[in-house]
Nucleic acid binder design. Structure first.
Lengths: 230, 230
DNA sequence: CGCTCTATTGATAAACCTCAAATACAGTGG
DNA sequence: CCACTGTATTTGAGGTTTATCAATAGAGCG
């Protein structure tokens, strides 16, 4: 992978509104209800009946599961422009995950009935959702494979590179991950502990691969991370 | 979970032909080409362009990925009545996994073009495929969560219970897992090593929870496994 | 400043992998 | 039936990775 390939906008692959024209897009959004969600607020709970689905206009959600012992696993992040819980609404089932705002977030919420109606009016939407689901299946299969075969540090490196791809911004001193990201967040995403993440990032900071403050990470040597994963 | 709930036929949830009548079903199968695949034969390779998709009439396939270092991870098994590679064909992409026959297996293969045509003639098929994909997403998300939060022995227990659900047969002395299943197979499915699996199964055999010969496992005390996972 | 949340670091222990070697078993051909 | 071969399984010793626990420091905020 080339250094210049690192910052790529993958969001288009996940766009629910792909191939809708501006008018249709406006109508779609208008049917939903805009909502402001404060940092650390739970939008919906795993197990609750799926009443609404959400589109993120600004900010970020975390979709996670909690196992019996209360340990939390992050299944994915939902960034700006992405949709959450559409499948649960379509299946008319319960939410299979819990959604938490990771910062102050603005969403558009559709009631189940309205969303189904909209899908009938715009058949392109369910097609787009299918694409999104397939991408997410691919993503989780990749991460499953990595979890099975790679050690923690490799997975941390891969995760930083992944974040760079979805929300990396090149600046003079490196690539900024433009979303608050604590050691704990990383640990839950990767399947390790906050201690191991901290140790690893400290080491890499000493090596000059990254710089980092609280919840902020700047990758100064992405190439080093790339070769580390190989 | 009750002891009597353990043997359940989950296959219906994954049936591509759901809601097709006998005639349609016959036509569908007839359009494909029957094929006998010997044990240990590769049906398709990860990375190859997806030319065909397959339906398993008899036997079992293993879908796996190999990472850069050659370590193999089993993503799922495809049992009798299930379909493989439909998504790759629909997406007109490459196979994302490798398919290997785990025993002598009979499949029906459709050429890409034929399969697309059939889906147009029977719109119920893509709907069913969507359901299947969602089930598989759910499955891998569960296993991802388990991999993150549980220790090896718990995951082994869960896996045995999972196999019981898909191919368990109750007999006088316990529930037979009716498919050849080596320690190696289990290890690749769970994300551990053959040694750890062997040690664990030996221990459980001493405890009287299971009995086992080469590639054959009989769960004599499923309840013990269930409470072990809790 | 005091409070809370986040991050760091060290010591220790547990879980699990790696490697080596032995054994058991299944299938084959004489 | 037996010997032979290759595969599958078992077991032990030893080492590595990573989790756990405890203690401390820093950052941000009212």
């Amino acid at each position: 992978m080339d250094r210049n390939d690192l910052v790529v906008d993958d969001l288009n692959n996940a766009d629910v509104f792909k191939e809708l024209n501006d008018e249709e897009y406006a109508e779609f959004l208008h049917t939903g209800r805009a909502k402001k969600v404060k940092d650390r607020t739970v939008l919906f709970h795993q197990g609750d009946p799926a009443q609404r689905c959400y589109w993120v206009r600004q900010g970020r959600l975390k979709l996670s599961r909690v196992n019996e012992e209360g340990k939390e696993v992050t299944l994915r992040y939902i960034f700006q422009g992405e949709i959450a819980a559409a499948v649960a609404v379509i299946k008319n089932s319960e939410y299979s995950v819990t959604a938490l705002a990771m910062e102050d977030t603005e969403v558009v919420a559709w009631e189940k009935f309205d969303f189904i109606k909209l899908m009938e009016r715009f058949p392109r939407i369910p097609v787009n959702i299918l694409t999104i689901v397939l991408n997410r299946l691919d993503d989780i299969q990749n991460r499953y494979t990595e979890l099975c075969t790679e050690q923690v540090e490799q997975r941390i490196a891969r995760t930083l590179l992944r974040f760079i791809r979805t929300c990396g911004a090149r600046r003079h001193d490196g690539i900024y991950i433009e979303t608050p990201l604590s050691r704990q967040d990383l640990a839950e995403y990767i399947g390790t502990t906050v201690f191991t993440v901290s140790r690893t990032l400290s080491k890499w900071e000493r090596k000059g691969w990254i710089k980092s403050d609280q919840k902020k990470i700047i990758v100064t040597d992405p190439h080093a991370l790339v070769s580390f994963t190989e």
